[in-house]
Nucleic acid binder design. Structure first.
Length: 123
DNA sequence: CTCGTGACGGGGG
DNA sequence: TCCCCCGCCACGA
């Protein structure tokens, strides 16, 4: 098989594996980094299959700062529970401060906003 | 090959 | 802030 094909998923795991304890990344963020062919939607699909893989899947959340594990799989809010044990705090709405926990891979520093903080309430 | 289905995201009301 | 709608794209039937 082709080496450079690396399987669609492997490229995602490569990034997820780099997320440090106590930090998170969003589906859209990863999709933006990988670019071509990747969207938040597909990253979610890949993470769904990551259960059996060896990756800190729990550190990937949605752009609202919450866990989107849906209703299926895993006991209720298990993902949030794990993250809380890693030191991340969630409010009563099940959301954490992305501007405080979001992590940017070293290999993609160019993706970091100028002010090195969140671009959110920029305009 | 076509169709439906998502661990999503952003814009608009 | 919440809700709805539409675009996104890999994958299985």
């Amino acid at each position: 098989m082709k080496t450079d094909e690396k399987i669609y998923r492997e490229r995602v795991y490569e990034i997820v594996r780099q997320i440090p304890v106590g930090r998170v990344m969003t589906y859209g963020q990863i999709a933006e980094i990988l670019g071509e062919g990747y969207t938040a939607r597909t990253i979610g699909y890949v993470m769904h299959a990551a259960n059996t893989e060896i990756v800190p899947w729990q550190r990937v959340i949605n752009s609202q700062g919450g866990c989107s594990t849906g209703k299926i799989l895993l006991p209720y809010n298990i993902q949030q529970k794990i993250l809380e044990e890693e030191g991340i705090e969630f409010n009563e709405k099940g959301r954490c401060k992305l501007d405080e926990y979001r992590w940017y891979p070293e290999d993609f520093e160019s993706k970091i906003p100028e002010d090195n903080k969140q671009p959110s309430l920029f305009e």
